[in-house]
Design a protein around this nucleic acid. Structure first.
Lengths: 214, 214
DNA sequence: AGTTATAAACTGACTGGTCAGTACAAGCAC
DNA sequence: GTGCTTGTACTGACCAGTCAGTTTATAACT
């Protein structure tokens, strides 16, 4: 909300910062960058077009501010979730919960992120970098778990991506068809598959021959 | 390639069907629907703009034809992979392999799919439905495994989404930064986490308390 | 309290460029 | 001689971005 490298960054606006951000995020998420017109966003926000340009250099600037703000929200939420638990396993559980929470509350942002990830190479890389920073807490929790023996010797980087993917797509499964997310079911699936898979089980290696390579 | 509900659907073109499709997919994937101009696509394909409009009703029609064709390729590949193994576990392994294969060979399509999944509600729903049909073979393999006791009692629907998400995002992890996918690493991570998680292990339930619900 | 000064926030009609889609005369191949 | 292709040129809609001017908020002076 503060220290953003953008012209206006939601400080101003008749109705205050948050509604402006919400409205813009909603339009961008629903229609995409190019289909969303600045006129339309201005109307949704409840200001004149010129006002948008008073606060933001141009449409892209506004768009990035929305993304940046979204990343901030996501990152902060994950950090809080990680801090709320004190061992790797609970951290992961808390993070999964928090992620699902974000998914439910900020669907617009989720779609915005997905859009950005499928954008041009540059945009994709930028967002992937930002997300990667947000997910550092997950990576660290997994790495810690591997170190202290709670988890098996997975690659924390890839395990993080995997978990992120599982949550995102499993939850997406509901949103794609405009159904409410069944959090209990998703959580239980993740517990059953991810958590169980990553925990250093008793009967260790036998079921897991990886065809050929390590 | 055949039975498509589209005007022209890549039957024609100087260089035959495939190059035309490839070029169009590439442009759409790199620039997105709105930034890609028909002139540009025509040039890339190597035909005159009028020719595009001779075969396709309009830009959207062309775009959908590309998507549809992509889905056909993906679906066929998965079906072949599933048929190549005769028990649930091997089917899953074969499907993972095949999926990664598709990911590597048809990056344009992957990005196109991602774009579409983050598009408007209608478009999202349409593509999600198509993908869901493609992934039926995965769902069935998982369901069969659950039935015959190879796998634990997961929800096949959600487990499929989870696996799809894992693969997609883990591989994306590389593509986002324009690095080649390290297939061995991705496969081993999936083996370690998904396969191991879903296999009905000896020490069954103890590690997997799901906070509260079933 | 009333007047004046100044800046910040806001407005909306207008402009200029872009691009989907059309039109068409002419060429080629089977 | 019909189906397919080309190239060029044109139109009309749409939209990002501009700008001259209005409103509101704040402070300062008498």
């Amino acid at each position: 909300m503060t220290d953003l490298p953008f012209s206006g960054a939601f400080k101003a606006g008749k109705g205050g910062s948050r509604p402006m951000f919400k409205a813009a995020a909603g339009i961008f998420a629903r229609k995409g960058y190019h289909e969303a017109t600045v006129d339309e966003i201005a109307q949704a926000v409840g200001v004149a077009k010129g006002t948008i340009y008073y606060h933001f250099k141009n449409k892209e600037d506004l768009y990035f501010a929305v993304i940046q703000e979204g990343i901030n929200i996501f990152g902060k939420q994950l950090r809080v979730a990680a801090a709320a638990a004190d061992n790797p396993l609970d951290k992961i559980r808390s993070l999964v919960d928090s992620h699902l929470d974000f998914y439910e509350r900020e669907q617009d942002l989720v779609f915005l992120f997905l859009k950005e990830l499928s954008g041009s190479e540059l945009r994709r890389r930028i967002l992937a970098g930002m997300l990667s920073k947000c997910l550092a807490v997950v990576r660290e929790a997994i790495a810690a778990g591997v170190k202290n023996g709670t988890f098996r010797a997975v690659n924390p980087e890839l395990a993080t991506s995997s978990l992120f993917g599982m949550i995102t797509i499993a939850a997406f499964h509901y949103l794609a068809f405009a159904r409410p997310i069944d959090r209990a079911k998703v959580k239980s699936t993740i517990e059953q598959i991810f958590t169980r898979g990553i925990l250093s089980g008793e009967g260790e290696g036998d079921c897991c021959r990886v065809a050929g390579h390590l």
